[in-house]
Design a binder for these strands. Sequence first.
DNA 1: TTTAATTTTGTAATGATTACAATTGAGCAT
DNA 2: ATGCTCAATTGTAATCATTACAAAATTAAA
Lengths: 156, 156
Amino acid sequence: MITIEHIKKKLIEKGIKPTYPRVRIYQVLSDNGGHLTADFIFKEIRKDIPTASRTTVYNTLSSFVEVGLVDEILITGTEARYEIKRRNHHHFLCKKCGGIFDIDIKCPLAQGEYSRVRGHLIQEIHGYFKGICKDCLKKAELEREEHEKDDREVSE
Amino acid sequence: MITIEHIKKKLIEKGIKPTYPRVRIYQVLSDNGGHLTADFIFKEIRKDIPTASRTTVYNTLSSFVEVGLVDEILITGTEARYEIKRRNHHHFLCKKCGGIFDIDIKCPLAQGEYSRVRGHLIQEIHGYFKGICKDCLKKAELEREEHEKDDREVSE
DNA sequence: TTTAATTTTGTAATGATTACAATTGAGCAT
DNA sequence: ATGCTCAATTGTAATCATTACAAAATTAAA
Ligand SMILES: [Mn+2]
Ligand SMILES: [Mn+2]
Ligand SMILES: [Zn+2]
Ligand SMILES: [Zn+2]
């Protein structure tokens, strides 16, 4: 639970005027875990600011990303996800339920910031996995067992 | 330069009927290096098949990805890129020129296929960097030198 | 050749994001 | 307080990649 004052300070530090919509957008990002869509944030701040526009959400997120307050994550192919910048980490996208999970693994990729590869200047490092998440695996397992039971009953 | 026959064999192996548009799409992927957009492929096969439709390109790419012949790369946030599947490798996206480069680094990520992380079943591994590519760095450097010269001349 | 199944095509719809002009609001000078 | 200027916000329209879907064409089977 970050305080409004703390948020304001963070924005000012980065040269962003802490208007109410901007502070609220940061607060939504802070209070709802990571990997939020612009649409989720929009609906959330609409509760407080019924006149808020999608454009403001997009503009604000862009400037947050630009100054390095927020990371933009492109995994799903349909919509960008946003989360407050923290130590570099990877992600896992479940192809079944669409869930995105943080994966904290030690990886040479995520070591020194702003290094080089093959002469190219690195500014961002992204790593992610796709597959079936733990929960969906368990669910599938249970369903399989159900089917087996059904089959047994039918063949009786 | 892969032969048509070789392409046909590859498609059949994966259960895909090697129609002419499909073979051509695979050939375009094969002949033009990696990271192609659907639009590029569309325009390319239009040269041979003036009636070809975008839908066919999208459908074909989807089935290629589905059977594991092709990888879909989501880096730019605007359009998917496609390349024939090969040994797992990372990518570098230049924020200046938009170029995408292969980065072959040994990374624990890209080791065993179909492993697990935190109980989640891994089916795909993606890693990429964003920054300024070698060429764009050099170009910027040259421009900087030009400006310095200008400044000197002005102050003379 | 007739028929059925598959593939391709063309066009319309979708949906996230961006462009942009009009409106609002904050801060400052009168 | 009033008006002024600049920045922020809003609302709406445009963009653009991708998908949906039905009609037309092609292929394979009978
Ligand atoms: Mn995260
Ligand atoms: Mn590649
Ligand atoms: Zn899942
Ligand atoms: Zn470049």
